[in-house]
Simulated scan of single mutants.
Amino acid sequence: MATISLPANVSVMLLDIEGTTTPITFVKDILFSYIKEHIEDYLSTHWEEDECKQDVQLLKKQTEQDIREHRACPVHSPDQTVHTDEEKAIREVVDNVLWQMAADRKTTALKQLQGHMWRTAYTSGKIKGEVYQDVVPAIRRWRQQGLKVYIYSSGSVEAQKLLFGYSVEGDLLELFDGHFDTNMGLKVESKSYQRIAERIGCPPEDILFLTDVTREAKAAVEVGMNVVVVVRPGNAELAEEERSHYSLISSFSQLQATGSA
């Protein structure tokens, strides 16, 4: 894949995380596995704390919305074991979280709880955020060239800050001008990118979005953003039509500002 020159008007880099700055295997094999293995213990330990209560309340509201919209929800079969009300409530939350994860849902309620669980894992040193080796040098170069750098991920803002704040390369948060999550909207919806441009305070045409998902790329293009699709090991295979339609890179080092060597 050839080097790509940034459009001269681009002043903002907007980066996806999974499959773009960070291996998909880290998200699926490390982060998601941690949730599945520790969700019940975490809820039991923190059940009476305000933060946990807020997370559970948000999940309940999401379930109520799912029911109103006739979306499938976990079915609770009769359990012969005698549980306390708290144990039963925790079990229902666990079932809901695992069901949402199996369905690869991006609800704010799910992402908020996951972010709080990952905070425990990161701060205790059980997990360190992974980034591709080409990411940090490229971002430092972009910033030296006067570009602003933002993150847009379906993971909560808190989860994003944990990944980069407790990374294998140390605290990287100073490299970013801001973070966006599903509070802006789903990543496959064009209006989400319009909101982000408005929040940053520049026209979409001045932003370059890097993602590994062509549905996200399409949504960003629809509002006028520039897009480059990132091809990394383990990412979903692109169809020939997608490969010919989008500019592709396999490393951030292939992106050069206009006039740079």
Rank of each mutant, 00 (worst) to 15 (best):
I4M: 03
N9R: 14
S11K: 15
L14F: 07
D16Y: 09
I17L: 09
I17H: 08
T21H: 02
T22S: 06
T25C: 01
V27G: 06
V27L: 07
V27K: 10
K28V: 01
F32Y: 10
K36W: 12
E37G: 02
E37N: 13
H38L: 14
Y42S: 06
L43M: 11
L43E: 07
E49S: 08
E51V: 06
C52T: 06
C52E: 06
K53Q: 12
D55C: 15
L59G: 01
K60V: 05
R68Y: 05
R68G: 01
H70W: 03
R71E: 11
Q80A: 10
Q80E: 08
T81C: 00
V82S: 11
T84L: 12
E87T: 06
A89Q: 09
A89C: 08
I90H: 08
D95Q: 11
L98Q: 10
M101D: 10
A103H: 10
A103P: 00
L113H: 09
G115L: 07
H116Q: 11
T120I: 15
G125D: 12
K126H: 15
K128L: 13
K128G: 03
E130H: 11
V131L: 14
D134A: 01
V135N: 02
R141C: 03
R143C: 10
Y152G: 08
G155A: 04
V157Y: 07
E158K: 13
Q160F: 04
L173G: 04
D181V: 01
T182E: 10
N183E: 14
K187R: 12
V188P: 00
S190P: 02
S190C: 07
Y193P: 05
Q194E: 13
I200S: 11
I200K: 13
C202I: 15
P203M: 15
P204E: 13
P204C: 12
I207N: 09
L208Y: 11
L210S: 01
L210M: 09
V213Y: 07
E216W: 02
A219W: 05
A220Q: 08
E222Y: 07
G224A: 10
N226A: 12
V228Q: 01
V229E: 03
V231P: 00
P233Y: 04
G234C: 03
A236H: 05
A239R: 05
E240T: 02
Y246R: 00
S247N: 02
S247G: 01
S247R: 04
Q254E: 06
Q256G: 01
Q256R: 09
T258D: 06
T258C: 09
